[in-house]
Simulated assay, not measured.
Amino acid sequence: MEIRQLTSLDAKKYWDLRLEALKQAPEAFLTSYEDAIKRENPVTQVAGNFADEGNYTFGAFEGDKLIGVVTLLQEKAEKIRHRANIYAMYVTPKKQGIGVGKALLTEAINKAKSIEVIEKINLSVVATNEAAKKLYLSLDFKVYGLEEKAMKLNGVYLDDEHMVLHLKRT
């Protein structure tokens, strides 16, 4: 398995995996599959995102197949530039539970640590997603809040737990 930052050349593979993620785990993402497929030129948009400063998307590859992704997005506003966020974390179901997610998150954390101004990383996770929460906790993320009814999916409310990792600077 290889973990690396994605480039515009990976945009089509990313988009295909993103659509899979939205179908397989709709509760894990704010975007719905139905909204995603309505986007115009999504692969071009993804390629542009990969080129944005402060936007780092990492992919896990098995050969040339993309099996997992995570995005680290640094805040741009001056007063909150010390924060980054984890978004769009996903590992294809057949590859879950074998360390792909941990490898991806470790790469994202290491990238954040390499950017001197970033002091903390935030993320949100559906409160019932025990596997994801276990992974985040294993990497020293801490829960700092609960948002009740954060999302409504098929008439069912889902709560989000907000988590933070404070980066240790030496």
Rank of each mutant, 00 (worst) to 15 (best):
T106V: 09
T106I: 03
T106R: 14
T106Q: 14
T106W: 00
E107P: 00
E107N: 11
E107C: 12
E107S: 15
E107F: 11
E107I: 04
A108S: 13
A108G: 12
A108I: 09
A108K: 13
A108T: 11
I109Y: 14
I109P: 13
I109A: 14
N110R: 13
N110H: 14
N110M: 12
K111N: 06
K111R: 15
K111G: 00
K111I: 05
A112N: 10
A112S: 09
A112Y: 04
K113Q: 15
S114H: 08
S114G: 14
S114Y: 08
S114K: 03
I115W: 07
I115T: 08
I115Y: 02
I115V: 15
E116A: 04
E116C: 03
E116F: 03
E116M: 07
I118G: 02
I118D: 04
I118T: 03
I118V: 15
E119A: 07
E119N: 15
I121L: 06
I121F: 05
I121K: 09
I121A: 01
I121G: 04
N122F: 14
N122L: 14
N122D: 12
L123V: 10
L123S: 08
S124P: 07
V125A: 09
V125P: 02
V125I: 10
V125Y: 06
V125K: 04
V125D: 01
V126Q: 10
V126I: 15
V126E: 13
A127F: 09
T128S: 15
N129M: 00
N129V: 02
N129G: 01
N129H: 01
N129D: 05
N129K: 06
E130Q: 14
E130R: 10
E130T: 14
E130F: 05
E130V: 11
E130H: 11
E130Y: 03
A131F: 11
A131H: 09
A131P: 01
A131N: 12
A132Y: 05
A132N: 02
K134A: 13
K134F: 08
L135D: 09
L135G: 05
L135P: 07
L135C: 07
Y136A: 05
Y136E: 04
Y136G: 06
L137H: 12
S138R: 02
